[in-house]
């Protein structure tokens, strides 16, 4: 199953993507449905759900601000 970690901007999503890739976590930047954020266009990182919690802890360790974790 795939999960999406949301970000408010493309810049932050790319910063997150870079950090996860450096930690050997496969991920993909994608746009997410505007209604998910309630603020319009936003971006997410698609990761495998079984790796999502670990991915989030890496983002937190690197002070990358993310929004929500969504299962798709």
């Amino acid at each position: 199953m795939r999960c999406i970690i949301t970000f408010r901007s493309m810049t932050t999503a790319l910063a997150g993507s870079r950090i996860l890739s450096e930690s050997s976590f496969p991920n993909r930047v994608k746009d997410i449905p505007p209604e998910l954020t309630g603020r319009g266009c936003a971006y997410g990182l698609e990761v495998m759900c079984h790796q999502a919690e670990q991915a989030i802890s890496i983002l937190e360790r690197n002070k990358i601000k993310y929004g929500k974790l969504i299962k798709v």
Partner: peptide, 17 residues
């Protein structure tokens, strides 16, 4: 247009957007 927070009538609060 900034490509982010596009349903808001004002620019996002965060940089660089």
């Amino acid at each position: 247009g900034s490509g982010s927070d596009s349903s808001l009538p004002h620019m996002p609060e965060y940089t660089p957007d």
